[in-house]
């Protein structure tokens, strides 16, 4: 991984000062430790934002997230809805002239937010991930009907998509019994050793 020149590093540091007191200058290193992407390498060309299919719903555009990670605006980034609205489509990573993946930076930000106990600005999305993983931990595989039902309860959105669910059921697209793996103990061990929190 190439390093920034001394001058560039200084320039970034002076920006941090300009931005205000509530910054964490080592935020980018925390991000890099998790995902390997060095946000300081971003030169703000905007290519990632230009191709991002979810940018229309984000309050911070992808390139802005990169800039804020550079500047250490940890609070704003971790509390944003944006980090939960990245679809993980990796269009940004495919096109970035610096070979950076905003997707991975967004992943790392969510992970840090989780570790620091920061409340998600998109509770429906984070509840989905929780319910999904709880199911995997329990059975080793996903049992979709239960996952959908639990998510509805957790996100208090009981009536969304009910007609669609009925149609899926009628078409035999939803299984009735969960399939459970034999190596459950091993999966539990994996969760214990590697899951965040």
């Amino acid at each position: 991984m190439s390093q920034l020149s001394k001058e560039a590093n200084e320039a970034v540091k002076s920006d941090i000062v300009v931005f205000g007191s509530e910054t964490n200058p080592s935020f980018y290193t925390e991000v890099q430790e998790i995902c390997g992407e060095n946000a300081l390498q971003c030169y703000q060309c905007g290519e990632c934002t230009a191709g991002c299919p979810a940018a229309f719903a984000m309050e911070l555009s992808p390139n802005k997230v990169m800039r804020m990670v550079q500047l250490g605006c940890e609070k704003e980034v971790l509390e944003s809805a944006t980090i939960w609205l990245c679809a993980g489509c990796e269009t940004c990573a495919t096109r970035c002239p610096k070979g950076l993946s905003v997707a991975k930076v967004m992943d790392a930000c969510r992970e840090i937010a989780g570790k620091k106990g920061i409340k998600s600005s998109e509770p429906g999305v984070s509840a989905f991930h929780e319910v999904f993983l709880a199911g995997v931990r329990q059975n080793g595989r996903v049992f979709e009907p239960l996952m959908i039902a639990l998510h509805k309860v957790k996100s208090r959105n009981l009536f969304q998509d009910v007609p669609l669910g009925m149609k899926m059921f009628a078409k035999g697209k939803l299984p009735l019994v969960p399939s459970r793996i034999k190596g459950l103990e091993e999966v539990k061990k994996i969760f214990k050793k590697t899951a965040a929190k």
Binding site: G88, H129, L133, I190, A195
Partner: peptide, 21 residues
């Protein structure tokens, strides 16, 4: 006895879990 790949939810919450599953 294959197990779930973790899909989006694993890598949205923990990089290590997303590799381990």
């Amino acid at each position: 006895d294959w197990s779930c790949c973790g899909a989006t939810s694993a890598h949205a919450t923990s990089h290590e879990l997303a590799v381990a599953l």
